[in-house]
C-alpha cells in the first residue's frame, strides 16, 4: 500500500507524459508523413530521390540510435534541445517515413478513374488533392494508420533513455529504488494495454463512421 501512495502520483504523471508524447508524436509524424507522401507523388525526380534516401535511412536505423544522435549529437551542430522536445522531434522523425508509406499506398488505392473524372471537368490538381485524393486515400489508409499509431505508443518507452519523465522512466526509477521489478513492470503493462485498447476501439469506431457511405448495401 505504501508503494501506491509513494509512487502512484509519479507513475500517473509518467503515464500522462507518455500519452502526450504519443498524441503529439503521432500528429506531427502523420503530418510530416503526409507531406512526404505528397512530395513523393508530385515532385520532380531528383527531389523524390532525396526523400527516398531520407525514408531508407530513418527506416533502416533503430529509434534508439536516432534518439541518441539527436539528443547527444545535436548540440555538436548547435541543436540544443530539452529532453521532452527532443523526444517529440525524435518520434516525429522516426514515424514519418512509415506514415508516408501508409499514405502512399492509401493514395494508390484511389481509383485512377475518379481522378480522371475530376480532371475531365477541369478541376485543378490542388483541388483534386483536397476534394478527391485526400478524403478517399485517408479512408483506405485508416486501418494501417491506426495500426502504426499503436506501434508508436510502445516506442515512447525509449524516450526514457534521454530522461523524458514518461511512464517507463518512472517505472525504472521505482524498480531501482524498491527492487519491486515485477510490480513496477506490471503497472507498465497495464497502462499500455489500456492505452492500446482505447486507441484500437476509437480507430474501429472512426472506421465504421467514415466508411458507412462507401460500402454497398443491398
Amino acid at each position: 500500500m505504501d508503494l501506491v501512495s509513494q509512487y502512484g502520483p509519479a507513475l500517473l504523471r509518467g503515464f500522462g507524459i507518455t500519452v502526450i508524447c504519443w498524441i503529439l508524436g503521432t500528429i506531427f509524424g502523420m503530418a510530416l508523413g503526409l507531406v512526404i507522401a505528397l512530395i513523393q507523388r508530385y515532385a520532380p525526380r531528383p527531389v523524390r530521390w532525396l526523400i527516398q534516401i531520407y525514408i531508407e535511412v530513418i527506416r533502416g536505423t533503430p529509434f534508439l540510435v536516432q534518439l541518441f544522435v539527436l539528443y547527444y549529437g545535436g548540440p555538436l551542430i548547435g541543436l540544443r534541445l530539452d529532453a521532452l522536445p527532443a523526444g517529440l522531434l525524435g518520434l516525429t522523425i522516426y514515424g514519418s517515413p512509415y506514415f508516408a508509406e501508409i499514405f502512399r499506398s492509401g493514395f494508390r488505392a484511389v481509383a485512377h478513374g475518379q481522378i480522371e473524372a475530376a480532371r475531365a471537368i477541369g478541376m485543378t490538381e490542388p483541388t483534386i488533392i483536397r476534394r478527391i485524393l485526400l478524403p478517399l486515400g485517408l479512408v483506405s489508409a485508416l486501418p494501417a494508420l491506426v495500426n502504426f499509431s499503436i506501434i508508436l505508443t510502445k516506442e515512447t518507452v525509449i524516450l526514457s533513455i534521454i530522461t523524458v519523465p514518461e511512464l517507463m522512466y518512472q517505472v525504472s526509477r521505482m524498480s531501482a529504488e524498491t527492487f519491486r521489478y515485477v510490480e513496477a513492470n506490471l503497472v507498465l503493462a497495464l497502462f499500455f494495454w489500456a492505452l492500446v485498447e482505447t486507441i484500437s476501439r476509437l480507430g474501429r469506431r472512426l472506421e465504421a463512421r467514415i466508411t458507412q457511405h462507401l460500402i454497398e448495401r443491398t
Binding site: A111, G113, Q114, E116, A117, A118, R119, A120, I121, G122, R131, I132, P135, L136, V139, H213, L214
Partner: peptide, 18 residues
Amino acid sequence: QMRRGVGMVFQQFNLWPH
C-alpha cells in the same frame, strides 16, 4: 479551360463515392 466545354462519361461511372 478547354476541358470545361467537354463533358465525359466513363465506362466505370467514376463517381466520387464519398
